[in-house]
């Protein structure tokens, strides 16, 4: 049965789009049929992170307004045949997304895909609430940093109140994904630890993504990190998180890159 997953956070810049793309690739690589949907109307970026920005003809709003059929707006990834993208519109009209329209699109996607991953805009306004509205599960992306944790707490509250599942009295699965984690700074007590964040937010942990230059590099290239460099630490962390989402039990770890002296020298020059 299809699963609708919203990637959300409240705060901007914590890694929702990066995580949507990386998880989408990881799930599609495991043979799942995946679509990633950009809900950030007016400020789309998932197309850019996925490397499909030059191929966008139609978008989510065109489908909602009935200009085109869903099938025509889906952009098939050139590298992974089981991965598709539905882009957000660049319109400034915030009313372009309607609850009924989003419901229809999600229902149509459920017929075609195993996983529908909705990349939420930042904030708690219309776009964000519509992105989570029909979700079965949520990935709450959080940086180990005070304002991000606080905003995640707000968003967890919204997930329990404003989603269709919650309104029907059902439970929406919430998973915490910690991104930009720097174990060195945690060791020096300069950064909140995993336990600190878990204690405050008290939702189950799905993965810990270490801070890494590979993430910026992936965005630069338009190839999600799980595709551009699947063996690097953040890619392995995303791949494990994706497998946990499918129900596998994998021991929680924070992958690290093995660095030789030569590697360090080259990296400094090449980054």
């Amino acid at each position: 049965m299809a699963k609708v997953l919203v990637v959300t956070s409240g705060k901007g810049g914590v890694g929702k789009t990066t995580s949507t793309a990386a998880l989408g690739v990881a799930l599609a690589r495991d043979g799942q049929n995946v679509v990633v949907v950009d809900f950030d109307v007016g400020l789309r970026n998932l197309d850019l992170v996925m490397g499909a920005e030059r191929r966008v003809v139609y978008d989510l709003v065109n489908v909602i307004q009935g200009v085109v059929k869903l099938q025509q707006a889906l952009i098939r990834d050139k590298r992974i045949p089981t991965l598709s993208l539905l882009a957000a519109s660049q319109t400034r009209d915030k009313e372009a997304l309607t609850e009924e329209g989003v419901a229809n699109v999600i229902a149509g996607l459920r017929e075609r895909f195993d996983w529908i991953i909705c990349d939420s805009p930042a904030g708690i306004e219309r776009g964000a609430t519509l992105a989570m509205r029909y979700a079965d599960a949520a990935v709450v992306v959080t940086n180990p940093e005070v304002s991000s944790v606080r905003d995640s707490d707000r968003v967890i509250g919204l997930l329990d109140a404003k989603t269709e599942k919650a309104e029907k009295g059902e439970r929406i699965d919430k998973h915490l994904l910690i991104t930009r984690y720097d174990s060195g700074r945690v060791a020096r007590a300069e950064m909140l630890s995993i336990d600190d964040v878990l204690e405050i937010l008290s939702i189950p942990l799905i993965g810990i993504i270490p801070e890494s230059e590979d993430v910026l590099r992936a965005s630069n290239l338009g190839a999600p990190v799980t595709l551009s460099n699947p063996m690097c630490a953040p890619a392995r962390a995303y791949a494990d998180a994706a497998r946990r989402l499918t129900g596998e039990t994998i021991e929680m770890s924070i992958p690290v890159d093995k660095k030789g002296l030569l590697d360090k020298l080259f990296r400094r020059r090449a980054a």
Partner: peptide
């Protein structure tokens, strides 16, 4: 191995 091109 090791060396990477710049992505910027």
């Amino acid at each position: 191995f090791g060396r990477r091109s710049s992505s910027a």
